[in-house]
Design a protein around this nucleic acid. Structure first.
Length: 496
RNA sequence: GCUCCCAUCGUCUAGUGGCCUAGGACACCGCCCUUUCAAGGCGGCGGCGCGGAUUCGAAUUCCGCUGGGAGCGCCA
């Protein structure tokens, strides 16, 4: 992916992903980075990763690590930011406090910002009171025009002010690449806080300063930020900054059409990784949520995505996250993955389940590969290998009660199994072709349909009525195991 | 409540005034293949929210309505 750097003339386009480290990277955030990443790679621009850790209460280093980890897993790399550095750092907002101070001072001097002495509690009360009276819950403008004396009096009370931005008259127009012009009337926008009383900047303010200083040209982010944009534009203007382009991507919703959240099931990227999803599948699915190249194509390689992704094909309407389609796509990608790579992933899941060792011997590895090869057509997550292939690695099979009743209690089974065992023991070499020949031959001999032999045998060997092709199973299990399992099935039948 | 956004099959979408009796994908159903289950192939079900206007002609333009969503924090 990095080959785009250097081989293309830098376009000067700079985009960013700016998560707050207050949790894991979730599906919505992942789609936002993905769009930014694709836009950067498509245009030969740069992607900057900036950590917005100005919420001292909720930000954690663990979250930063988790987000970075997920990004790396997804294969979405950044050109500047944590780990890789860059010329416009620091890339943690908590390390840029003096910069915000400087610009806050400018706003105070130019009259765009003023101290507000109301406490969060007072504000909260006022909000509630307004709500009770059915009025808009906004800021009253109480500290807007305090005289120097009044300010000194408040200071004397020991109040530490927050800084508010003075919203002017008129209207603010957001020019959005996806939505066109959106007009906000300033009268509906309250004087908002730009610096908290603890000295930390708020999101809206810090983002404007950083995006400008980091020379961000395009802000691609989720729709929920659209109402923030007029506020930010006012600050750009007040500070004499040049406006970037904005592109607000619609949101990803859950099945109930509300903002996707934990209660909709898995939403963190790491959950999908652990559940056996492939990063390419997730990326491919996510890009389709709000973007389409043409009427037909569903599957896109990274290279194709980079080549074909443009903002004008991003749709405006919110998209509902559909786990079924993701699952289908993951299955598709699994089938496309070569067996060796898939085996590596399978070992993670199998060893976690205690079925194989995490550093398998050559012999064990060969077996795992064989299992993966026959299972990859029918699984949809890598973890399915554990669910569907556990019997390859266990000593005994666990019988599915229903399957046992249906196929093993048939009256012809005991005799058939005894004879089958004798015949299997005699086979050499023991492989899928030779065993198939013998078993089919035997079925014919006793005047039964192949299925009448195969189904009971499947239950004896795998414990269930559903499995990969029985002769492939037999080959991987090997002669000894097959005979042992026929014996234990017979033993269990005798105990009835 | 206020502000803003959005509106094509159940879901993701193609569609930018005539190529649309609306195309594809997932899901669902049926058939084929077949030792089961998948995979694969073939077929089916299913949609332009409503009302006006513009036009020879509207899924596509405009207005209204309705519906859904988001935002209204010293969170980001």
């Amino acid at each position: 992916m990095r080959r785009f750097k250097g081989s293309l003339i830098m376009s000067g386009i700079r985009v960013r992903f700016a998560p707050s480290p207050t949790g894991y990277l979730h599906v919505g955030g992942a789609r936002t980075v993905l769009f930014n990443w694709l836009f950067a790679r498509h245009t030969g621009g740069s992607l900057i990763l900036r950590i917005e850790d100005t919420d001292v209460e909720r930000s954690t280093e663990a979250s930063t690590d988790a987000i970075i980890d997920s990004l790396q897993w997804l294969g979405l790399d950044w050109d500047e930011g944590p780990i890789v550095g860059g010329d416009y750092g620091p890339y943690f907002q908590s390390e840029r406090l003096d910069i915000y101070r400087e610009y806050a001072d400018k706003l105070i001097k130019s009259g765009y910002a003023y101290p507000c002495y109301c406490t969060p509690e007072e504000l909260n009360e006022a909000r509630k009171a307004a709500m009770r009276q059915g009025k808009p819950p906004g800021y009253s403008g109480k500290c807007r025009d305090l005289s120097p004396e009044e300010r000194r009096a408040k200071e004397a009370e020991g109040r530490r002010p927050a800084l508010r931005f003075r919203v002017g008259e008129g209207e603010t127009v957001v020019k959005d690449l996806i939505r066109g012009e959106v007009i906000f009337r300033n009268e509906f926008i309250d004087d908002f806080i730009i610096v908290k009383s603890d000295g930390y900047p708020t999101y809206n303010f810090a983002a404007v300063v950083d995006d400008t200083l980091m020379k961000i040209t395009h802000i691609i982010r989720a729709d929920e930020h659209l109402p923030n944009t007029p506020k930010q534009i006012m600050m750009y203007k007040a500070l004499g900054f040049e406006l970037p382009e904005f592109a607000h991507v619609s949101m990803i919703l859950g099945k109930d059409k509300t903002k996707l959240s934990k209660r909709h099931g898995a939403t963190s990227i790491t959950q999908y990784r652990d559940a056996g999803y492939l990063p390419d599948a997730l990326v491919n699915y996510l890009v389709l949520l709000g973007w389409a190249y043409d009427a037909e194509q569903q599957i896109f390689s990274r290279e194709e995505l980079i080549e074909k992704f443009t903002l004008d094909k991003v749709s405006k309407n919110p998209a509902i996250f559909d786990p079924d389609k993701l699952l289908w796509m993951n299955g598709y990608y699994i089938r496309e993955t070569d067996t060796d790579s898939l085996t590596k992933l399978a070992i993670d899941h199998l060893s976690k389940a205690g079925l194989v060792s995490s550093e398998p011997s050559d012999e064990e590895l060969t077996k795992i590969q064989a299992v993966v090869a026959i299972l990859k057509e029918r699984i949809r997550t890598v973890r399915d290998i554990v669910n569907q292939g556990d019997f390859f690695f266990t000593e005994e099979v666990t019988f599915d009660e229903e399957a046992f009743q249906e196929f093993l209690t048939r009256n012809y089974v005991p005799e058939m199994f005894r004879e089958l065992k004798v015949r299997l023991e005699a086979i050499s070499p023991f492989n899928r072709q030779t065993t198939e020949q013998v078993i089919r031959g035997y079925a014919k001999e006793i005047g039964r349909k192949a299925g009448e032999v195969i189904h009971p045998l499947r239950v004896a060997l795998t414990g269930r009525s559903v499995s990969p092709g029985i002769f492939e199973v037999i080959e991987i299990l090997g002669k000894d195991t097959c005979c042992k399992r026929i014996d234990s099935a017979l033993r269990k039948l005798r105990q009835l």
